[in-house]
């Protein structure tokens, strides 16, 4: 099995209720106060007020992450800068609002500034004009794993030389109550400024290193047992590098989530496990928050962040903070 592409993280941004800095990313808060996002502080400037909330969270997180890189990122040629952003519910409330407007008064009353965000790719796409990104702008949309898959895609793109720096992240907004939303769903955004492992130092700050493996588990005919799918990944992951000390598992109570939880319990040994319970269909931010938190605030120990969707998609991030033995 070939090793997954690794990347180096040189900037972190976190914008979520109770976690407005990367070092607070591991702290989970339930209810989001209505005024938690103070735009004057987190996203000052003209032209943002009409944007959907999720877009503002993402822009604020990206701005914060890029502040870590000083002028380095801004000075890169536009064709060397890119973004990959994961999401699942970032536009859900917006779609609900659109539906209500069309039914109540007609499509002519839709906000032209927000209509483009019917396409979820616009959330990632909005970063391009904001920060001059011209290499590519990609959106990954799926429950639970999209944020980690954004990191995986960024690592592959960097390894392939498609960009010098990639903003990888996740953005979410809570679905409306009618859509099954609630306090347990993700809200906010996280952004990691990523560069290739082999690239010259981007600046003085290196949070750590990361790679992501993906798989599919399920109960459909022909799909192998969970252990048959995940054991090779686990063996591959544990084969090299510093000792694996911690496991963060973002799981729901779906059959896939329960199957992976049972597998993890059998494989974890004496490693510390932090289980983060999410409702099926929740956002993709929670796993990426764990990555950000492990890089910014966790003990300097190697950690795995694992996420599973109710559909059976599994993503496993290998997170190595800078102080844990890998330069």
């Amino acid at each position: 099995m070939s090793a997954p592409a690794r990347l180096r993280v040189v900037g972190l941004g976190m914008t979520a209720p109770g976690a407005l800095r990367p070092e607070h990313a591991l702290e989970l808060h339930g209810e989001a106060p209505p005024d938690w996002f103070d735009a004057e502080v987190l996203l000052p400037g003209r032209g943002y007020r009409k944007l959907p909330p999720g877009c503002r969270y993402l822009l604020a997180a990206a701005r914060s992450a890029l502040a870590d890189t000083g002028a380095w990122f801004a000075d890169l040629p536009a064709q060397e800068k890119a973004a990959v952003i994961g999401g699942n519910n970032a536009g859900a409330t917006l779609q609900d609002d659109f539906d209500h407007t069309v039914i109540a008064t007609g499509a002519a009353d839709l906000s032209p500034a927000r209509v483009p965000y019917m396409a979820l790719s616009m959330f990632a796409g909005r970063l391009a004009p904001e920060h001059g990104l011209r290499a590519f702008s990609l959106a990954a949309n799926s429950p639970a794993v999209a944020g980690l898959e954004a990191l995986q895609t960024a690592a592959r793109a960097l390894a392939a030389g498609r960009a010098t720096a990639v903003l990888a992240g996740a953005v979410e907004d809570r679905p409306a109550q009618a859509q099954g939303g609630g306090a347990a769903h993700d809200v906010g955004a996280a952004v990691l400024v990523c560069v290739s492992e082999g690239a010259p130092a981007a600046g003085e700050l290196v949070y750590g290193h990361c790679s992501v493996r993906g798989a599919f588990v399920g109960e459909a005919p022909g799909v192998p047992e969970v252990s048959d799918v995940l054991d090779p990944l686990w063996k591959d992951l544990a084969a090299e590098g510093p000792p694996l000390a911690r496991i963060d598992a973002v799981l729901d109570d779906s059959p896939a989530g329960e199957a992976v939880a049972a597998w993890l319990t059998a494989r974890a040994g004496d490693r510390a496990i932090t289980a983060v319970a999410r409702p099926p269909g929740s956002g993709s931010l929670a796993p990426l928050r764990r990555v950000v938190g492990r890089l910014a605030a966790g003990p300097p120990e190697r950690a795995v962040v694992l996420a599973v969707s109710a559909h059976g998609h599994v993503a496993m991030a290998d997170v190595v903070p800078s102080a844990s033995g890998v330069p």
Binding site: K50, A108, D109, L110, S111, P112, A113
Partner: peptide, 12 residues
């Protein structure tokens, strides 16, 4: 785009 947005708000 901003012009369109303003005109919609003006209509409302």
């Amino acid at each position: 785009l901003a012009t369109m947005e303003i005109l919609v708000q003006l209509e409302k």
